[in-house]
Simulated assay, not measured.
Amino acid sequence: MSTPPPTIGAVVLTMNDRKEEFTRAMDSLLAQEGVDLDVVVVGNGVEPELVPPGVRTVALPENVGIPGGRNVGAERVKGDLLLFFDNDAILPEPDSIARLAARLQQDPSLAYVQPRIADPDTGVTLRRWVPRLRADATRPGTVTVMAEGIMLMRREAFERVGGWPGHFFLFHEGIDLAWRCWDHGYTGYYLPDVTVHHPATNPARHAMFYRMNARNRVWLARRNLPRVLVPVNLAVWTLLTLWRFRDLKVLRTSLAGFREGVRTNCGTRTPMSWRTVARLTLAGRPPVF
């Protein structure tokens, strides 16, 4: 008797602003072989357009942000595994998802597995797409964070840790989710043998990037770290910000976001155990960086 294919719930967000990219992304997703796919497209403040036949949709009355929209999609799809897939990404091979799923099935300690992300024109993998401090895009292995846009996750782990931090809206939600997975005893894995194409866009193109990037870094630390490590993490971030950004306008915006993160509600605080701090450190990424 043959083994049934893995069941995968795929979540794709849209704001109807990437018509050509969305069509290519959906074509590549629906062409995947060796998996049982259930796909839902979530319209973030819109009624989804150009959706292929047989794909279900959810239209949200307002834009709730990327992590919030993904949470909605995860509730709607069926499957033991959850695929979060950017609407401008492309799966170049028909077995890409099946290979990611196989890696998860081989190791029950894994919460998530991430492929290598590369620009379709240049083949370049950006530094921020490699989920480790040493940015060797070709080296597989255990990782402590994730690139949020293209990732396959065990549903059991996703639900156990509470899903994405929806109130983050955009930026750093993947670190938050990964840290909570590690605190529940899971790990993550980077599988560069599976490549997914994604345009090498600059996140700073978003008008709110510097403010929300800073705010969410503060929320991330406040929500997840033991109290003694929170000021250490934020001090490291502040020093790096001062070193990287010489534009006074950018600095002012980042510091405003920092103050917002300190003064506003970060959500439920569930600090990781010191055992998790040690596990993350041994895995190559102490949670102060």
Rank of each mutant, 00 (worst) to 15 (best):
L170E: 07
H184R: 12
A147C: 14
H184V: 01
G149E: 15
P203T: 13
G166Y: 09
A178Q: 12
F168Q: 00
H172M: 04
H184P: 00
T187K: 15
M146G: 08
V196S: 04
V145D: 13
T142K: 07
C181R: 13
R180K: 15
L170P: 01
V161H: 09
M153G: 06
M151F: 10
H197Q: 09
L177V: 08
H197T: 05
D183G: 06
P140E: 12
G141N: 10
R154P: 09
Y190H: 12
V161P: 05
T195H: 02
P192G: 03
A207H: 13
E159D: 11
V143Q: 09
Y190D: 08
P165H: 05
F171S: 01
R205M: 15
H167M: 02
V143H: 04
P165M: 11
T201D: 05
E159C: 11
P199I: 08
I175R: 04
A200G: 12
E173V: 00
P165D: 11
L170K: 08
D183K: 06
M146W: 03
T142M: 12
Y186G: 07
G166K: 05
T195G: 01
Y186A: 11
L191A: 14
Y186C: 06
M146Q: 12
L152Y: 07
W179Y: 15
G149V: 04
A178D: 09
V145M: 07
V145P: 01
I175G: 00
G174E: 15
W179N: 00
H197P: 00
G162E: 05
R205Y: 14
H198I: 10
V194L: 12
W179S: 02
V145Q: 14
Y189D: 07
T195M: 04
N202D: 15
A204M: 09
A147M: 11
A207M: 07
A204H: 09
A200V: 05
G149F: 13
G185Q: 15
D176Y: 02
L152A: 11
E159F: 07
Y189K: 11
H197S: 07
F158I: 04
E159P: 02
G185A: 15
R160N: 09
R154Y: 10
L170I: 09
A204Y: 07
G174D: 15
Y189N: 07
L177M: 14
A204Q: 06
A207Y: 10
V196Y: 02
G149S: 11
P203Y: 12
H172Q: 13
A200N: 12
E156N: 05
W179V: 02
P165S: 05
G166H: 11
T195W: 04
A147W: 15
C181A: 10
V196H: 01
H198P: 02
P192L: 07
N202T: 14
R154L: 13
R180L: 03
H167E: 05
P199L: 12
H184S: 01
F171C: 03
M153A: 13
G141S: 10
I150D: 04
H197G: 06
D176T: 02
A200D: 13
D183S: 10
D176K: 02
G185W: 15
T144N: 02
D193P: 05
A200M: 10
I175S: 02
G162D: 07
T144G: 01
G185M: 14
M146I: 08
W164S: 00
A157C: 11
A178W: 09
Y186T: 13
H184M: 03
R154K: 14
N202L: 13
C181G: 08
E159N: 10
N202Y: 11
W179G: 00
A157S: 08
P140D: 06
G174F: 08
P203K: 13
E148F: 09
T195L: 04
